[in-house]
Design a protein around this nucleic acid. Structure first.
Lengths: 121, 121
DNA sequence: CTGATGTGCAAGTACTTGCTTGCACATCAG
DNA sequence: CTGATGTGCAAGCAAGTACTTGCACATCAG
């Protein structure tokens, strides 16, 4: 359930689709999920395997089917990592801004939005 | 700056390393960053390109160098997406638990931790 | 000017990844 | 039992990815 595993798992669009499906439709079987996606059941199974390895989903056998459900903890933990990184940067920004108001630094990038800067939309 | 781009960008360990370096060490040049990683400058440049495309970093030319800095907004936005998915699931859980206390569902996976369940650690 | 340093562009390579197809095994209804 | 449905395993393939190497161009110090 490392941060890397979770991010890598969510990097794939089909896998994100699966996660969103599970989030709002509840626990489902692989075959059922494959019915709502333009891929084979086997593709879904493999994706669910990656998600499970990352700790994002869990599975439970009931009779001849295997039902998959979300495991929100892995998601929130990874979200926290991202927010921590962002916060760390913001804190650095604040410190520098306070210490040296005179020097012009690239640090102000966010408010400058230069030619080289990738624009947000 | 889509969610998919950000997640795909952060899926790579080297790129995460770069992001963490920038977060705590401030804005740096590609060559300087390459000095702290076991890869070539060109590899770093390409990684920064991906991160920039995703809106995670921004760059600013100053003289003959190009300095890169973090763009926290993309990170927090993606973090929010993950938390939303997790929250959606939790809400479903709560509703079901309230409506049908009698029926046993796989939905309770989180508290059951069965043989098939990937264990958290 | 010269040399050093930093960048940009491009092609090539080893490896990974998402997906499919094919078949065997297990479980349920009749 | 038979047939239908759901699952598991494995090989194969096309496309993407991370990384390198090589070289040309731009900028600074002396």
């Amino acid at each position: 359930m490392t941060t890397g595993e979770v991010l890598a798992a969510l990097a794939d669009p089909t896998r994100r689709r699966l996660v969103e499906l599970l989030a709002r439709a509840g626990d489902r079987t692989a075959t059922s999920l494959a019915g709502e996606l333009p891929v084979t059941r086997q593709a879904v199974v493999q994706h669910l395997g990656v998600l499970k390895e990352a700790g994002v989903v869990g599975s439970l056998r009931s009779g001849r089917e295997v039902r998959f459900g979300l495991r929100p903890d892995a998601l929130t933990a990874t979200a926290r990592w991202m927010e921590d990184v962002a916060a760390q940067w913001d804190q650095r920004l604040a410190v520098i801004k306070q210490l040296a108001e005179a020097e012009t630094q690239i640090v102000d990038a966010e408010t400058q939005d230069d030619e080289m800067m990738t624009r947000q939309r």
